[in-house]
Design a binder for these strands. Structure first.
Lengths: 106, 106
DNA sequence: CTTAATACTTCGTGATATGATATATATAGT
DNA sequence: ACTATATATATCATATCACGAAGTATTAAG
């Protein structure tokens, strides 16, 4: 997929991955994989940004001798998903504009 | 609309605006306006980039005492639109992932 | 003992949207 | 005659951001 196109979907994808249950970095990547490839450096950058924007909260816990950071969505994060749904209407109208066939040609 | 989301649609929007007929900067902004706001600095940056990528060609012509630069789409530009249509399937599956409701909750 | 999987972190780079600013002409209003 | 608005393009500085590369550390499998 086009890189620029991905950019607009990354944040909201990560938020969707923790929407129903808290999760941690490595798991999030695996959950998102069927829909979109995301490298670790990209994910952790995004998680940090979403944390700064208070769209998620973090807690650190030990699991099997390793440390994990669990991320939980906040109300702001849920709002962000709702905003995406609003944006979707505009995206659809743009899609139609781009794919519209020329009437007097073709 | 979310800025990051716009990024992925800007190029393809501009290409769509010249898909059927050559056009010029000021006109392109007006044609795109119903779907997306785009400032002049943004548009001319994009036109330059698309020209470098050979997705469009330019010719300069005088019109009413003013110079205009007319942009015409190339085969590469048309291919770019087709690629967007392919990307669209992935975007749809991401949209479903993001908007999917939790079954055991809600 | 080595490889792969798990798990997170940091850094440098390149791409890029946009506001601000500048230049120049034509037209419409007062 | 003056002023404001619309038309038309160009450049620069800035801030944001995705991502590869490289690193640290543990556990499990072969």
């Amino acid at each position: 997929m086009d890189i620029q196109l991905k950019r607009g979907l990354l944040d909201v994808c990560v938020l969707a991955a923790i929407k129903n249950n808290e999760s941690y970095g490595y798991q999030i990547i695996k959950d998102i994989k069927p829909y979109m490839e995301m490298s670790e450096s990209t994910l952790y950058t995004i998680l940090k940004r979403l944390e700064n924007a208070q769209m998620l909260t973090v807690r650190t816990a030990e699991y099997g001798g390793r440390l994990r950071k669990y991320y939980r969505i906040t109300q702001s994060g849920l709002n962000r998903i709702e905003e995406f749904k609003d944006d979707w209407k505009e995206i659809l109208s743009i899609y139609r504009f781009v794919t519209k066939e020329d009437e007097e040609n073709e």
